[in-house]
Design a protein around this nucleic acid. Structure first.
Lengths: 159, 159
DNA sequence: CAAATATATGTAGTAGACTACATATATTGA
DNA sequence: TCAATATATGTAGTCTACTACATATATTTG
């Protein structure tokens, strides 16, 4: 075991990111193995527009939990791939409304069996004594109650 | 609840990254609140060199689980901050040996109480029904046995 | 109803990791 | 022993998110 793994929770941010990268990389390869040209980072937008067909930029950003600039750059890529298209909102001229194209719809159809496979494979992978997905949700809940910073500050006073 | 959180494990990579960023950001603020000018990304290198005083570039990379180019750029920053220094290995001329400077040693000393606070705050935060740190370790173990890609491939054949 | 404020979108540059490639030195094996 | 291979380090450019700032339209309020 290396020093970092021993340091345990001090390097937890690093560990989370490493795991995320690993999963994403394999995710890309799994799509590829199914003959689908799809980048995992596109999933949140495509999945969201599949379930809520017409949304503005900020609405999508909120749904996927990204900032709007990050969202805009994803949208640009997806428009370039002709998987989504946009039109001005006639009521509110500030808004740009996004939706899947026919090509986008078709791709989602093709991806759905892959998503089923991914779901099962992931479930199997994280089904251990401490379930990773539930752990994430629980920690997110904890952070909502009291931020990490506040927890450290409270601890500081005690020491 | 938004669509992505509902999509559950399909967006697990995104969720992991989001959580990592959040923790890292607060981590930086916590050092700052202690009057310490230290970036969380430097932790793995500093912690490693504190426990193993003289290491080469690749040895550090292996300890912290990063690639060597990533490690090199961290080392550059730390040398610029004069927290570490390097010298040629006299036996193996290819190697560059790194170690903490006096300033680096002193900083680690100052950080140790902060690390204690961070440890306790983190432990408190992740001490839920499903412990996040243990979940990470368990999933890393699962991936060592069989990659995510191989799991999906096996699942594919079954469907 | 016009000024102030809020919201929606967009651009530019940054951060922290990566891969791919290049070079220098060390080791190995025919 | 020297050619082939392996290892150590370094550079350049990429990727996927971010923050900070800018602009355009809508809404609110004095």
């Amino acid at each position: 075991m290396n020093v970092i793994d021993e340091s345990g929770i001090l390097a937890i941010a690093t560990r989370l990111q490493r795991l995320s990268d690993q999963i994403r990389k394999d995710g890309f390869q799994i799509y590829k193995a199914h003959g689908i040209d799809f980048e995992p980072k596109w999933f949140p937008v495509m999945y969201t527009l599949f379930h809520k067909p017409v949304l503005s930029v900020v609405e999508i950003a909120n749904e996927i939990g990204y900032t709007h600039p990050s969202t805009i750059s994803l949208l640009k890529e997806l428009e370039k791939e002709k998987l989504i298209r946009s039109k001005k909102d006639k009521i509110d001229e500030r808004k740009r409304l996004l939706q899947l194209t026919d090509k986008g719809q078709t791709l989602v159809g093709k991806m759905q069996p892959v998503w089923d496979v991914l779901k099962i494979a992931t479930a199997e992978m994280i089904d251990t004594e401490n379930n990773l997905m539930r752990a994430i949700e629980e920690v997110e809940g904890q952070l909502k109650e009291k931020s990490f910073f506040d927890r450290a500050a409270a601890q500081m006073k005690r020491v």
